[in-house]
Design a protein around this nucleic acid. Structure first.
Ligand SMILES: [Zn+2]
Ligand SMILES: [Zn+2]
Ligand SMILES: [Zn+2]
Ligand SMILES: [Zn+2]
Lengths: 169, 169
DNA sequence: TCAGCTATGTTACTCTATAACCTTTCATCT
DNA sequence: AGATGAAAGGTTATAGAGTAACATAGCTGA
């Protein structure tokens, strides 16, 4: 149930993609929603990148992969679906999207975002969510969703401060 | 083209604005930075609204108030200055800006945002900031800034939606 | 005064996202 | 199989948010 942070550049990423896609397929079957070719392709591209990906970058990738023009509404509709199903998260501070490693478990959007390499590490800290809910309740506020975006330097980049070409692309 | 009036009329908002502006003046004098007419005007408009305000809404207000055209870079530069000095915060989820009630104290951007009335309540929870830093450190992450944006219903709006059947459009 | 810096004005542009409308695809019912 | 209605995707146009690049004005300190 714990998802390993993705800061390490030496994990089997192909495996990690295929796992996520298979999980997404099963999740959609279970919910009776349609993971169409387009939606699957968008999810795959997002996972391949392993970093938050902008909608327009995604559009270019789709256009290249499909040899057809892909207009903004097309990709935004796919993104909306994936967001609704919890298969991806939106990183507001970057206007970008990233795959969720545990879409079956309901949780909030808590990320560590490295300003040097651009990686986004999803946190799995239910007690942090709970503390936030508590603080909100003290103010009479009824929480519906949380977005925590912590910016700074990841372990890799904090170590390599002499040069930033640490190659996590 | 119309800007919505102030949400909460139950506190002395004029006093609240003038306090904030006076604090800003002193803060800028103390730091040796220039709170120009434009910057002050932008800060005042943001405080008058008491809700997160988009840059383009602000532009329209400035244009009306000054009877002159105000282009995007003008307002964005003023906003950048105010952000740097900690006089306002940016609400990422809304692409909007709101005044900070305690600009002299260094702190993170933690907000409760009501989806019904649009109000944004700034939290003052240093121990929450600390816990977030702790969680990040456990992942070897070096925190530079935090953005916590909690969406839901404020105390006012949560109360008013309990009997929601009468269809008050 | 002059030079140099900071702030603002101006034009044009990029990036992000959505509205409105039409066509295709797909599951379901007859 | 054929009809049908809803969901998904295609297309065009536009709205909304933010920045680059360069010109001008205005303050500041020799
Ligand atoms: Zn997640
Ligand atoms: Zn990094
Ligand atoms: Zn503040
Ligand atoms: Zn409210």
């Amino acid at each position: 149930m714990e998802h390993t942070p993705i800061a390490c550049s030496h994990h089997d990423h192909n495996h990690c993609i295929s796992d996520a896609l298979e999980a997404a397929r099963q999740l959609c079957v279970g919910r009776g929603v349609r993971l169409t070719d387009l939606r699957l392709q968008v999810l795959e591209l997002i996972w391949q990148n392993h970093k938050p990906l902008g909608a327009y970058t995604l559009m270019e990738m789709l256009a290249k992969a499909n040899t057809r023009r892909v207009a903004p509404p097309t990709v935004y509709r796919a993104l909306d679906f994936l967001l609704e199903q919890g298969l991806i998260h939106r990183i507001n501070v970057l206007n970008a999207f990233i795959g969720c490693p545990s879409p079956t478990t309901k949780h909030q959007s808590h990320f560590l975002i490295c300003r040097a390499c651009g990686i986004a590490i999803e946190l799995d800290q239910p007690q942090l969510s709970q503390q936030i809910i508590g603080v909100a309740q003290d103010a009479g506020f009824q929480v519906e969703s949380q977005s925590l975006e912590v910016s700074g330097l990841c372990a890799n980049c904090a170590g390599n401060t002499e040069h930033d070409g640490h190659g996590h692309e």
